[in-house]
Simulated scan of single mutants.
Amino acid sequence: PAIFTAALLNSQPMGFYAPAQLVQDARNHQVDVRAIDVNFSAWDNEIEVGALRLGLRQIGGFHKDWAVAIAAARPFTSLEELARKARLPARALHLLADADALRSLNLDRRAGGWEARRTPSDELPLFAAADARELAQEPEIALPVMPVSEHVAADYQMTRMSLKGHPMEFLRDMFAAEGILTCAQTDAAKHGARVKTAGVVLTRQRPGKGNAIFITIEDETGVTNALLWSRLFERQRRAVMASRLMVIEGEVQRSKEGVVHLMATHITDRSHELERLSHDHDVNVPLSRSDEFAQPVYPRHGHPRDVRILPKSRDFH
């Protein structure tokens, strides 16, 4: 399973399976999946002593030549050493920090981001770099701890997956209070049961000129496959096509072979709930739209996390 998953990840984008699905399936089959790290990751996803080590290619916007330079210059003990030995530009350092790929340097995402901001690019001339390092000697600042929900959101933004959790698990109590089932509970429901279930949208498909829309959503327990007839789709087009996080209401249908589909009757767009992933007593990072950060964790122009919290679903047009 580890070799198969690595090959599929290295071949992305392909098919209707997102990286998060592939990694979760591997973990469900007892594959040890290890995080991206500057001291261990190559460009590609690779097998490492029986485990799957995620590659630097998973970081959105990262360049292969940077990964090659990192692999050739290892090991590193500090971010400054990484920048100097691998001759990395500032953007590469920022992307590595935002992807939480500096753990072996004893830097988590927030501390790494702060250090990347203070570390001069090795592309600077020698004396300019020396002056910049002198100017960068600032007093130590006690950074607030980043909540796990925000880590998960940032992981999805940077790598389209997270080994720390699933976005839906942090919203579970709220949805459970509304009587909304998990995907696993929907899959276990009796034939004919009327249910509501919620999840992150993975795919929306309309085969050929068919009169049905097939929707797949995912939460921390699995996936739900829903079918929506075209006549109902036309009445709810906006909610169906715009949702990043969707609530589906419908009737469970179970075939003799045990295949479960949710025959959808009503779709609700709950994408705005994703804002809650970044709300914490100590940290407040508001979102400009339902699924975009409006401000970075630390100030700089053109933050790479000014992107969607969740990767785009695979849709028909």
Rank of each mutant, 00 (worst) to 15 (best):
L102H: 11
L52G: 06
L56D: 09
D65G: 07
D25H: 14
L54F: 09
E48Q: 08
W66A: 14
H63A: 13
E123W: 08
P120N: 00
G50K: 00
R118Q: 12
H63D: 10
Q30M: 10
D108S: 01
I59D: 08
L105N: 10
L124A: 04
L54V: 08
L79P: 15
F62L: 12
I47A: 06
R34G: 00
D44G: 05
Q58W: 08
A42S: 13
H63V: 06
E81T: 00
D98I: 00
L82A: 10
R91I: 10
D122N: 14
A73H: 04
K85Y: 04
L124G: 04
L96R: 13
N106R: 15
T119L: 13
A111Q: 15
R103H: 06
T77E: 15
K85T: 04
A86Q: 07
L52R: 01
Q21R: 04
L52E: 04
F40D: 03
P120V: 00
A83C: 11
Q21Y: 01
R74W: 04
S78D: 13
L54P: 05
R34A: 02
A72T: 12
A101H: 11
L124N: 03
D100R: 05
A26S: 09
S121P: 06
R91L: 13
A42R: 11
L79E: 15
A73M: 05
R110S: 01
K64I: 15
N28P: 01
A35T: 06
T77G: 14
A97Y: 10
L93R: 09
G61E: 15
H94C: 09
S121R: 08
D65A: 09
S121A: 09
S104K: 01
V49L: 05
K85C: 05
D122L: 03
A72G: 10
R118H: 08
Q58H: 13
R87I: 09
S78G: 14
H94M: 13
R57E: 12
P120I: 00
A101N: 09
R118F: 06
S121C: 07
I59R: 08
L95K: 10
L124M: 10
E115T: 07
L105H: 08
A111H: 15
D44I: 01
A26E: 09
E81W: 00
P89Q: 12
I59Y: 10
G60H: 13
A116K: 02
V31D: 08
V38E: 01
R53P: 02
A90F: 05
H94F: 11
R110L: 02
G61R: 13
Q24I: 03
L105W: 04
V68C: 10
I59E: 11
N39H: 00
K64M: 15
L107D: 08
L56W: 07
A35W: 03
